[in-house]
Nucleic acid binder design. Sequence first.
DNA 1: TGCAAAAAAGTCAAAGGTGTTTGTAACCGG
DNA 2: CCGGTTACAAACACCTTTGACTTTTTTGCA
Lengths: 223, 223
Amino acid sequence: MEKREPAADPGDASADEATSWQAQKSAATRNLIIESAIQCFVDLGYARTTTTRIAHAAGLSRGAMLHHFPSKMDVVKAAVDELHSKRLKAFRNSIKKAPPPGKGRVHVAVQAYWEHVRHPTFVAFFELTVAARTDPQLYAILEPAQAAFYDEWYRTAFEAFPEWQSDKEAFDLALDLSRYLLEGMAVSSLTHAEPAREQHLLEYLENQLRYLRPSTDLDAAAN
Amino acid sequence: MEKREPAADPGDASADEATSWQAQKSAATRNLIIESAIQCFVDLGYARTTTTRIAHAAGLSRGAMLHHFPSKMDVVKAAVDELHSKRLKAFRNSIKKAPPPGKGRVHVAVQAYWEHVRHPTFVAFFELTVAARTDPQLYAILEPAQAAFYDEWYRTAFEAFPEWQSDKEAFDLALDLSRYLLEGMAVSSLTHAEPAREQHLLEYLENQLRYLRPSTDLDAAAN
DNA sequence: TGCAAAAAAGTCAAAGGTGTTTGTAACCGG
DNA sequence: CCGGTTACAAACACCTTTGACTTTTTTGCA
């Protein structure tokens, strides 16, 4: 066997030169396994995701995989953590690059979350959530991540939309409405997408959010 | 063993006197199996529902069960049909007994669907829907029932709320909004219920529906 | 009563999944 | 270059699930 370069490390490419080659490769393999697991959740669902399939998708033997993760649940745990940080990162990014100060923010924000809930990351998380309902062990792993995400989601949104801070009740309502409606649409579209109806509802939601938004002097008729 | 009366037959109690006692009992057992399967979907999720557990829940041996349903998929198919007809029946009932002609109908309708999506019947259907996303065989069984339900749902609602017939676009929007929002809330509450927020959103939804409703001469300010 | 048919129960092998154990090759530090 | 460690692979034993097959019990009818 020739020596292979450790594959690119998308997770946390800590290019620490002190880290040995072995450690780099190990981390790369770990990430490969995690990504494969997530892919399996999306493609096969949680129930049909077996260690055999994950290993196969990663191009490894089961033995190799169980070297990095002693049990299946260890893989799941790592995948949950990865999904959690991915969701958070994606959300922060879209918030950060999205802020034309007072103009069209509602549209951008709605589109951002709508894209998020249609992304494979959300699908994988959703699969896990459903499975966790009847699987206490998985629930114990998933619940903290879930709670932390929505907590952070709320806080970040609150800071990113200061014009709402004068009416916290309206803000909560707007956030809940957006979240439940978009997630409901996304879940439904997993098995039966209806683009036209979805588009209508997105426009409706945006209008509702503009209506709920506390009026400031600046944006009487701003989109 | 004493002879047991054939259990009450909730499914299709064709009280045909010509049907022998055996046939009655057979039908009762079939229904018992179907109900047990549905219960398993709710309690364990689709993935963990095995023939052994269904039989155990029904108080039968696996052999007896496979006498009535040669394969597991046959049970699933029967359960889907039963769930479909149950949902439809429940929906029609709540529509039928719900109509104070023009007063408070929105509230009653919203509450009715909200109760429906929190009912075990919906949970079971939801479990199947999620599993079907990555299980073509199950999808083939479920999709027709799913489509038929929403089709019927739409038609029945359209007839039951004639005051909306003047603005079909608003009607569609109102129906989609209600469906996606309530289903989104229900799905979310499966793992993490938040009664206070849910209540706020229900009130909000009702107000929105009243706002969307085409105004007639009769109910300018009717709740 | 006695026999045929249906219902119910029990047994079995095959397939697939999990985790453990054992084996091999590559890397690292001295 | 050598002992120890790490990455990976393969084989193994155990358990679960499924569906086919066989046997026993119960019912219907002559």
